[in-house]
């Protein structure tokens, strides 16, 4: 099962290494990780997506809390939340395929951010599922390069 943690940490050197070490020491692969400053510049937020079973994730959550540099751990796995990811795609585009691609990009409400004679760079923002669908649609044209930011996430209050 995929777990999603939002972790508030002290914004200084070495914290990322401590956090990632917890996962690697148990043999878990982090599928996605984003780090950035919060509204308070002394605090960073890490959003970590990882695959594992419940027992292990429970342990990981406690271990994260145990780290001195970790201020707060929020498990976003099963709570109402908004989840977004940004992706840049460099896609082959000939004169024949360009308009087809633009049509797909429009359907996904994504943007063309660069055009060259034989390629396009597309920027897409959305839920991971949407991003995956877009990638699937563009694959036949030939994706030359792909960069994903990983998910960021925020809990919704009803």
């Amino acid at each position: 099962m995929k777990y999603l943690f939002s972790v508030l940490v002290e914004n200084h050197a070495g914290v990322l290494a401590r956090v990632s070490q917890l996962f690697s020491a148990r043999g878990f692969n982090i599928t996605s990780l984003t780090v950035g400053e919060t509204e308070d510049s002394t605090i960073s937020r890490m959003t970590i997506a990882v695959d594992g079973d419940e027992r292990v994730m429970d342990q990981v959550k406690k271990q994260l809390n145990k780290l001195i540099d970790v201020i707060k751990v929020v498990d976003l796995t099963n709570v109402p939340q908004v989840e977004r990811e940004l992706v840049l795609l460099k896609v082959n585009a000939t004169r024949q395929t360009r308009s087809e691609i633009i049509e797909i990009v429009d359907v996904f409400r994504s943007k063309i951010v660069h055009v060259a004679s034989n390629e396009l760079i597309i920027e897409a923002v959305g839920h991971m599922i949407k991003i995956d669908a877009l990638i699937k649609m563009l694959k036949p044209y030939g994706i030359k390069e792909l960069a994903r930011t990983g998910q960021v996430c925020m809990a919704r209050t009803e």
Partner: peptide
């Protein structure tokens, strides 16, 4: 040494 001792100290500082 801080890198080496992450997993074997309660905390460490440089």
């Amino acid at each position: 040494i801080t890198g080496i001792t992450y997993p074997i100290t309660k905390h460490n500082y440089l």
